[in-house]
Design a protein around this nucleic acid. Structure first.
Lengths: 367, 367
DNA sequence: CTGAAAGCGCTTACAG
DNA sequence: CTGAAAGCGCTTACAG
């Protein structure tokens, strides 16, 4: 089924068919012919071959979402938001990589070979952006510290983190563990840094090591760094031991937690903050396995506020990151960039939007 | 960056470049030239334009996964399985539709316009397959009753359902509620029918209505139908009222459950089975809101065995549907069909594989 | 208003 | 072993 067949049936040229099916026939094709073409299209069930159209136009109608962990339930909301904004004009292609793994340079090349209309990249590392060097419009999602690289929609997590630490402090917690994500992305570096900084301000101790109970000391440079949410953070404090971290996967987190919880509790920890709700689920499972009662013996909190965090045992306190809004906003900016009327169209200034993260308190801390 | 530029740099023809980058140069291009081409490719960072290659070859390297509910965490495992099997040769494109909504005829046409190498379709309705009429290889996932339409990988849920009903019966439950999914797909019709049949065998009453407490009676035709897992099921019993059903979404399920739980409990229900774990999460949330203690006052079970079902309050008993195996097996069959050496290559017989569903008992029923 | 023609970047017979 | 040429199905100036 090709345009040539439609043209033959309608008794017109291929050009005429192309103009009509693309809605560019106003003032160029007679109403009579346009009608005959539309009839032929319907009768034959003709659909424009996107591949051929892309070849000549140079750009496809694909928008590619690159994320290190698409299986994470968090992205359900993000994807819904993106789709709602993209509408029918663009098709969303999800780039699936293995859990927690950033796409490689080779993957990046393959994306480009599909000639996408635009790219949405979630939680990238700086190295990934170097490899990318894309010519197509690009919008970053949840990429703190990379605002100078491209248009970005980020979270202002400082209010949520402060509220969380204040909340734990008010409940009497003075020593807390921090279970990090093992993917080396900026968003997790920032969660960690802000938590350490807030805890330090209140004189709390944060345990971050996997294999001993040494408390991490936040460096002065770090603590003095600009705390504005939009500003780059100097990176997590350096310590010579292995940080307690796991892949964003319940089972992986449970294993690390089972190892680390006894040590932390022996060192006086009465609460644990996890860098993502998925990690917190694993920690809850490990605590249950060890017979540790939450929140009586251990308070637990996460980041994301996944839908299922309402029904965990106990329901999970979490710094809520609004996924739907993230997707919608990023898609809106990408469309603007594709249409060439975005704030980036002068190539000089990159626009950044901040979505505020808020604390949702549930029984896992409130006891 | 085109093949022409590589050819110029290497001092050869475009044809030679194409042959070398596609690994078809054996015995056709001199070793010296092949080497010069490879160097030029590396230096220029050349990647074959997939769009152009697809246009001439007629088929792309895209495999499209169509599923009504990709945001459901269940698909995390399925997708991982598919990817593991597809490897580097094919790229997985996830067709994102709104939660619970089957793709329309228009969507189907758009897929075809991308000239996919193959299609994987999860939990389709018969109507969807009619619209599809695809020429490309296709494998169905979790499509009971549609085995005659295409190669399929299904679940044999009968053992899991029987085990669940036996388990509930052994705990003394005699009247149970059933919260269904509102997507009209065969897989859910089957879960419902098998559950009703198993309950009837043990003399149990199943409540399925949203607005009254009338017990559904399984029809004789239904109960006598072939219980073989691979066989088509005659459909859910007909009743004139609105079935208790919700979208596969925690919030939607919670709302329906809040409405239906008091009625069911008044009618004597001491247990509820949900057609999916996501629905069970919503029901757990609603039960908590109503002050109903699980499992003391109400036993709860689901289908899927999502990773987070280990950490719900309480941990959820569930009929486990192995997602990773489903994805791997379906992808393997699709590859065989693409290569033309599948069991379907004669166009006559459609191959069906069954993966066994097993019951995982946790605290939500075991008390 | 209309259609013939060029060209998007490839792959693949085909002739040397 | 090598390269010129046809052609995949479109879109878009361009000439009428």
């Amino acid at each position: 089924m090709t345009a040539a067949m439609v043209a033959r049936r309608a008794g017109v040229s291929i050009s005429a068919v192309s103009l009509v099916v693309n809605g560019k026939d106003a003032g160029r094709i007679s109403a009579a012919n346009a009608e005959r073409i539309r009839s032929a299209v319907d009768e034959l069930g003709y659909v424009v071959d996107r591949i051929a159209a892309t070849l000549v136009r140079g750009r496809s109608d694909l928008v590619i979402l690159v994320a290190p962990d698409l299986a994470n339930p968090f992205f359900g909301q993000v994807i819904r938001g993106i789709r709602a904004e993209l509408g029918d004009r663009y098709r969303l292609l999800l780039s699936v990589t293995d859990s927690g793994v950033q796409p490689s340079a080779a993957d990046v090349r393959q994306f480009a070979a599909l000639r996408p209309a635009g790219l949405l990249v979630d939680a990238p590392s700086a190295a990934f952006l170097d490899e990318l060097g894309a010519e197509e419009p690009i919008v970053l999602l949840d990429a703190p510290g990379l605002e100078d690289r491209a248009t970005a929609v980020n979270y202002d997590i400082a209010p949520g983190v402060s509220a969380l630490v204040d909340h734990l402090h008010a409940l009497g917690h003075r020593t807390i563990g921090y279970l990090d994500a093992s993917t080396g992305t900026e968003t997790f570096a920032r969660r960690r840094t802000l938590l350490l900084r807030a805890a330090r301000r209140l004189g709390m101790t944060v345990l971050t090591d996997r294999d001993n109970d040494a408390a991490v000391t936040v460096t002065d440079a770090d603590a003095d760094a600009d705390a504005d949410a939009g500003a780059a953070v100097a990176g997590a404090p350096v310590d010579s031991t292995t940080p307690a971290a796991a892949d964003l996967d319940l089972a992986a987190a449970a294993e690390v937690a089972a190892h680390v919880l006894p040590t932390w509790r022996a060192a006086g920890a009465t609460a644990v903050v996890c860098a993502a709700d998925t990690l917190a689920y694993g920690l809850l499972a490990a605590a249950a396995g060890l017979g540790i009662r939450v929140p009586d013996e251990l308070a637990v909190a996460g980041f994301d506020d996944l839908p299922s965090s309402v029904v965990t045992a106990p329901p999970l306190t979490s710094v809520s990151l609004p996924g739907g809004a993230l997707g919608r906003s990023a898609a809106r900016r990408l469309l603007a960039a594709i249409d060439g009327d975005g704030p980036d169209s002068d190539g000089a200034h990159h626009d950044t939007e901040l979505l505020t993260a808020t604390l949702v308190i549930r029984a896992s801390t409130a006891g």
